[in-house]
């Protein structure tokens, strides 16, 4: 990979990668770090990665970094809240579809969230998503279906609050 090719990838993929990371982990600094790490790794492994797979490679690294961060966050939260009784408050005000979707999106599993983001935001095929997430095509399709099903159910319930 030449510097020029690398820079072209930066121009064409950094926004998408950042959006993907930000939508998952919500913290801007963490998302930025994921993007930086992904590009650093791409540059370090530029001779090992096939030129047709740069994009998938970037998303794969970002995906793995995100999973690590999310696991860490989850462990921290588990430790902090292990003795706190679950709140049953449902007094949430939903302002418009965007917010409802955001809320619903946070309630589905990480893998479902990721495959849907890759599908809807990046327009990846099932095979490409499979390459990033390590699933096969059928698993990807099923995961997207289950994710959308879950979202649909949450949205159906939330309609009552609207």
């Amino acid at each position: 990979m030449t510097i020029e090719e690398y820079n072209q990838i930066v121009y064409s993929q950094s926004d998408a990668l950042f959006r993907f990371a930000l939508k998952n982990i919500k913290v801007v600094e963490d998302a930025q770090e994921i993007v930086q790490t992904s590009f650093e790794k791409l540059w370090l492994n530029k001779d090992k990665v096939e030129s047709t797979k740069y994009k998938a490679y970037l998303f794969k690294i970002a995906y793995n970094s995100m999973i690590d961060i999310i696991r860490k966050q989850r462990n921290e939260v588990d430790l902090e809240t292990s003795n706190i009784p679950e709140s049953h408050s449902t007094q949430t005000e939903y302002k418009g579809l965007k917010q409802i979707l955001e809320k619903a999106f946070n309630e589905i599993s990480e893998i479902q969230k990721n495959v849907i983001l890759l599908r809807d935001y990046e327009g990846y095929s099932y095979a490409e998503i499979g390459e990033i997430t390590g699933l096969n095509e059928s698993q990807v399709k099923i995961t997207i279906f289950r994710g959308r099903q879950a979202l649909q159910k949450i949205l159906g319930k939330m309609e009552d609050y609207l």
Binding site: V10, S14, D15, L97, R148, Q152
Partner: peptide, 26 residues
């Protein structure tokens, strides 16, 4: 069901990476 499932399809958002220049190799 069709209408609510359709709502689960996300619209791509315009989010830009703020430090693009920092990633470039010069």
């Amino acid at each position: 069901f069709y209408q609510t499932l359709k709502l689960t399809y996300l619209e791509p958002q315009e989010i830009q990476f703020p430090n693009k220049q920092g990633l470039l190799k010069k």
